[in-house]
Design a protein around this nucleic acid. Structure first.
Length: 555
RNA sequence: GCGGGCGUAGCUCAAUGGUAGAGCGUCAGCCUUCCAAGCUGAAUGUUGAGGGUUCGAGUCCCUUCGCCCGCUCCA
């Protein structure tokens, strides 16, 4: 079909059906009813994904383009473990912040641990006994009917008290409260006596605990704006998969499956520096599995709980981050284009400053390379992110590991912690984009659809067909098949059934070239080559097929 | 996490509460000189799973798993 075939018009259901029918992607554990968020690659899918990863390794690690300074870019490879010392994830901010129920303030975009929320409660002053006081304070914070006047975030009552003392003047003025007894005097209940418009109250500080927070978060004031309505319910953000080291499986043995491959690079940064003679600027590249316990895995393989990343951490002098950021952003964009994502389904999008990740608040910026998947159309979904991570990660690891990670630059005669530009791509998302891009409905052909893979990443590179299964044609075909397979990898040989059926099968598999041996082959030593995209046929010499195919498969 | 829809052969779908079927695909054989041709035959199902009602459940009820869509979320 023409260029006009947009991804919005492609059916994701049909793409998924083809993926299963032809053995690209299967649901994991399908015979047991499946498991949400996990997918297995079948024979063609595994080859397709390997071709993608091989192309990435070749083009970024082994033969990257020249850098912005015109010199060859220096990149080395790495393959670090999925499980690391749990302290790695404390340093990176993945533990701590994301293992406890968290509450977001939708207005200020701030997030805090639910159990760190303290509220200042106000109640009509009781006339009675200390028991009555105690009852009120015990209910404050846990009873959904007790809504705090304002909130703060603190991990202990001391901090919370401090906050109230520090801010009391301003806050009490805001709520027209007059303190009639100093808060510091009321140790037992963290309480104080106040007046508002002539009415007496007891003010009390108490943690806002689960039930109250869960039920009345909408009316609880935000600790940042002191206005109600902007808090989300507490939610568990333990997105890391946990496991235990050793057979005893106690809490002391907890370890995590990595949620990103990046940290494996940062913690090996010094080893690489000390052993490989690289010097600034340089990059470390790694591809491998990462795991995130996503709340809502969806959209086929797009958001999976187990996925594979292809990442470069590129280290450079802080003054050069902008040029390297631009270089990698444009280089990575061009790379995806070179694999066949040539149309306007591919988009480069610079992030606005307010959506930057915690590690990228300052610096050259962040951009996404996005693809218009059929399920995101007319919108786009992220394929790769290119971010300036500044020296955030190295700073964290230097502190937590008490390691010296500074680099001494001989040329500049300067010691510094390098900044990092991170192009981080999703291999599975890449495969999915290649599948969606290749999927081309064509009612004119027998298969009704063909996969228009770029020859470089097509899983099956070529097929060899004897036109009929006799008269010496199979023997010629087998010889050619053997030669092509040894040179190019996955090459199909099929002497069975009608030639049309065989072409149709190769169309669905996305095989770009089919070589057919016919009766003329036996006399003039030529074969026909059938082009997948145009259906045209040429005749070429039998002994030139290998070289011809080799040329076609170059990028 | 909430709401809605859907689960029968590899795929697309049939089957009144009463024997689980068809087409396509796959495989084997024959035939076949360039785009899923034809002929003959074969394999393929705990009807997603588990309970319940019933003499009898693919069909009715409950639970659960999975997929799709819309919200929510996406460090």
């Amino acid at each position: 079909m023409s260029e006009a075939t947009t991804n919005a018009a492609k059916s994701m259901d049909e793409i998924m059906a083809l993926c299963k029918r032809r053995g690209f992607i299967f649901q994991a554990s399908e015979i047991y009813g499946g498991v949400n968020g996990f997918w297995d690659y079948g024979p063609l899918g595994a080859q397709l994904k390997k071709n993608l990863k091989d192309a990435w390794w070749q083009d970024t690690v082994l033969t990257p383009p020249d850098g912005p300074d015109g010199k060859p870019v220096s990149i080395v490879g790495l393959d670090s473990c999925i499980i690391q010392n749990p302290k790695v994830w404390e340093a990176s901010g993945h533990v701590g912040g994301f293992n406890d129920p968290m509450v977001d303030d939708k207005e200020t975009k701030q997030r805090f641990r639910a159990d760190h929320l303290w509220g200042f409660f106000l109640h009509a002053a009781p006339d009675g006994s200390a028991d009555e006081f105690r009852m009120i304070f015990e209910r404050a914070g846990s009873d959904p009917n007790f809504i705090p006047l304002f909130c703060c975030v603190a991990s202990a009552s001391g901090e919370a008290r401090e906050f109230v003392v520090q801010n009391s003047k301003k806050l009490f003025k805001q709520f027209k409260l007059t303190v009639t007894a100093d808060p510091a005097d009321s140790d037992e209940f963290a309480a104080m006596t106040l007046e508002q418009n002539g009415q007496r109250f007891i003010g009390a500080l108490a943690p806002v605990t689960g039930e109250a927070l869960a039920q009345s978060f909408a009316s609880i004031p935000s600790p940042f704006t002191h206005k109600a309505g902007s808090l989300t319910p507490p939610r568990a953000f333990n997105l890391m998969f946990r496991t235990y080291l050793g057979a005893t499986a106690t809490e002391d043995d907890i370890a995590y499956l990595r949620p990103e491959t990046a940290q494996g690079i940062f913690i090996n940064y010094k080893n690489v520096l000390d052993t490989t003679r690289v010097k600034m600027p340089f990059g470390i590249a790694q591809m491998g599995k990462a795991f995130r316990n996503e709340v809502t895995p969806r959209n086929f393989t797009f958001r999976s709980r187990e996925f594979e990343q292809m990442e470069i951490e590129f280290f450079c002098h802080p003054d050069t981050t902008r040029e390297w950021y631009t270089f990698w952003r444009d280089t990575r964009m061009a790379w995806w284009r070179s694999l066949g994502l040539t149309g306007d389904n591919l988009l480069l999008r610079e992030h606005d400053t307010d959506e930057l990740a915690h590690y990228a608040k300052t610096g050259a910026g962040t951009s996404d390379i996005e693809y218009r998947f059929p399920f995101t159309a007319p919108g786009f979904g992220e394929l790769e992110g290119v971010a300036d991570r500044s020296n955030f990660d190295l700073t964290q690891h230097a502190e937590h590991a008490r390691a010296k990670l500074e680099y001494f630059d001989q040329e500049r005669n300067e010691r510094y912690l390098p900044h990092v530009i991170e192009p981080s791509a999703g291999a599975d998302r890449g495969v999915l984009a290649l599948l969606c891009e290749a999927f081309t409905p064509d009612p004119e052909r027998a298969s009704k659809v063909y996969m228009k893979f770029h020859p470089r990443i097509a899983p099956i590179k070529a097929a060899v067909f004897p036109l009929v299964n006799k008269d010496g044609m199979p023997e010629v075909g087998e010889k050619l098949h053997k030669e092509l397979r040894s040179r190019f990898g996955m090459v199909d040989f099929d002497p069975k059934q009608s030639i049309g059926k065989r072409y149709a099968r190769m169309d669905e598999a996305g095989c770009p070239y089919c070589f057919t041996i016919d009766s003329d082959t036996l006399t003039d030593q030529t074969v026909t080559v059938r082009h997948r995209d145009t259906l045209e046929q040429d005749r070429i010499a039998l002994d030139k097929v290998g070289d011809w195919l080799g040329e076609k498969l170059k990028a």
